[in-house]
Design a protein around this nucleic acid. Sequence first.
DNA 1: CTGTTAGCGCCTTCAA
DNA 2: TTGAAGGCGCTAACAG
Lengths: 334, 334
Amino acid sequence: MKKKTVTISDIATEAGVSKATVSRVLSNSPKVKKESKEKILKIMEKYSYVPNNMAQSLAGTPRMTIGIVIDELANFFFIEVADGIDKVISHSGYSMQISSSRWDEENELRLVRQLISSRVDGIILAPVSETSRSIALLKSSGIPFLLINVIPKQEDLAFVSCDNSAGGRLAGQFFNRMHRPCQILITGYPHQSISYRIQGFKETLEKPEELIHYENINTYEQGYEIASVLLIKNRLASIKTALFVTNDNVAIGIITRLLELGISIPEQVSVIGYDDIKLSTFCRIPLTTVSQGIKDIGKIAAMELLEMIEGSAEELPQHLIEPQIVMRQSAVIL
Amino acid sequence: MKKKTVTISDIATEAGVSKATVSRVLSNSPKVKKESKEKILKIMEKYSYVPNNMAQSLAGTPRMTIGIVIDELANFFFIEVADGIDKVISHSGYSMQISSSRWDEENELRLVRQLISSRVDGIILAPVSETSRSIALLKSSGIPFLLINVIPKQEDLAFVSCDNSAGGRLAGQFFNRMHRPCQILITGYPHQSISYRIQGFKETLEKPEELIHYENINTYEQGYEIASVLLIKNRLASIKTALFVTNDNVAIGIITRLLELGISIPEQVSVIGYDDIKLSTFCRIPLTTVSQGIKDIGKIAAMELLEMIEGSAEELPQHLIEPQIVMRQSAVIL
DNA sequence: CTGTTAGCGCCTTCAA
DNA sequence: TTGAAGGCGCTAACAG
């Protein structure tokens, strides 16, 4: 016994006018007699009428919503970016729809297709890979879109990203000045942003050949777990060590575990993270980390996308944000 | 020069068949000749055709998406809940659309209306208030929906929530056993979940009349700031104090600042939080907190909503989750 | 100011 | 196995 949803015609009938008039009050057209308008409004109120956005969209009205696909909901980095986006667009009357690809390209494609299919006005995508099929799909869709957290190979794509090579270099310089006998690099899933960081890091390191590298560590839980392994395999307790972890979440997980295991930080093990999520200030040992102005990424991306949608974009927005190293307590240079 | 999106008719024309046939391959109907189907599929591929979900929906096909509105994106509690929801529903082929009300009822109403207007198949709402107008709107919409983080006054509403009174009582018992001369309560915005926690807490306290209460502290930043105030006003440095903070994010902010100010935790100031977000394990002083099984909330809510959508729900799902206190380091009983 | 008439893109009978 | 036709709810000219 589901109640039939009331439509524009129901309202029209009850008000004794035509659908067109009702439609006019919906779109707030000025040329509707005051009485008619009030009467219609009252009836709408009475039935808690909500226009069918699908129909509106079909008929040509913009949906006023932008879609965003990120890799991972539980990653504070993306949440902060999304929050930045939301602030900007909601200010312009747009709504945001987030979904998470869970680092799965198939999934990402499905979600992007969903968004295109839903005819959102614009899309912001943090692609799993710079060659994601979803990017091609997006291009052929004709919907304005913008990539974040990736520097696309193709030149005709809009993006906002941190200069990850530069970030890696900053970490490398820091390492060089710390002079630790043991140097370890811990990275996440093989994402472009990560490989650029690795590259910049290695090319700056004075003795890259001695670097120990752990891959595919992507969450703080995984960081927490790998810590015990490191302790034993790389004899953290007896050899002064420096860790570069390309993701703050992971770095924090490692530090937490290391502290539990009685390792002193930064004295015995120094840790440099990447991202400068808010949490890095609040964790047990405030994190020395490479900052990429998270708030900016979201804000800039949102503003640029809006311009692309409104058609006022002069040229293709392509922002490469310069990173900075923030020295806190987990790694210090005296 | 925006390219016209290709439609079912374009495909039909090019394939030399009728729209109906194309539609049939879209819905994977068995009664289409293999050759026709392959031909059509090929053409769709060629144009990267993506069906217009608006049109499909208008014509009666379910959208396979559920909407969710939370109070605050930056609150780890909600993120974890959303993540739990996503895991469940994506498994069933549904997509999720999150948006944030930013604790603004008007905004919440707008977002819910958006969702209804978009004819999503179901909605999960964490209402700003138990009397939110959006709840009434949702009821009259006929769309299956479920409330989280609130125990509705009306009996005919589906919900999943923690038993917040019980949680408050747990904290109260803990306080009683700590015997601190100064007892402080720090709460967030006046939300139902908060007032229940306060109530349960106060009614359990042995000397509630001595309780000091700070309100409207809602983020870790605000917690960080209020800490300095507490230090001076309530002479934290000289009087052994116990703090009950009804939100882990805030508790962590306070602790961070207190440590910076040289206060020892839990020796000088004990802190009990609420929510048991993941972070509470990872922060500088692992948090003693009231756990409400966050993961469960998301999972249960999603499963129940799906049942409501599929129409297989026996009765109205109403879950009151029993809280537990988790003793870590920020407050201890010997 | 208001009604009429076409669609928007797709699905679903009903016939063929 | 396929096509024709009508309709989903709404907007947008075009006449009055």
